[in-house]
């Protein structure tokens, strides 16, 4: 069994985690174009190499980030999202200015 080191729960079997996709900046959904939104939702870097990606520990619903090599499958580092996100991201729906 492959082991992942959860920043909250310590080393656990990788089957306890769900992969959440690569970390990428989200355009503002209320102001960006449809094309920019499609790019964010569907397109992917799909890098063969070291990437930063989201993971969740299912039992504790805890989301965190991992640096992983997508060719060797080596997990280089896992860390709390607070290292990157200093502010809370609001998803409140605003009226689209047309």
């Amino acid at each position: 069994m492959k082991i992942m080191n959860c920043p909250l729960n310590g080393p656990r079997n990788i089957s306890e985690f769900i992969h959440g996709g690569e970390l990428k900046p989200m355009p503002n959904p209320t102001t960006c174009s449809d094309r920019e939104w499609a790019d964010y939702v569907f397109y992917s870097d799909n890098t063969a190499g070291v990437i930063t990606e989201w993971w969740m520990h299912v039992a504790s619903s805890y989301w965190f980030l991992a640096e992983r090599h997508t060719v060797t499958d080596e997990i280089l580092r896992t860390f709390d999202p607070q290292e990157i996100f200093q502010e809370r991201i609001e998803f409140a729906v605003e009226e689209k200015r047309s």
Binding site: S44, D45, N46, A48
Partner: peptide, 15 residues
Amino acid sequence: SVLAKQAGFRLPIIS
């Protein structure tokens, strides 16, 4: 995706 990147674009693909 690896080749597309060399051509300068991204794809809606994950391997």
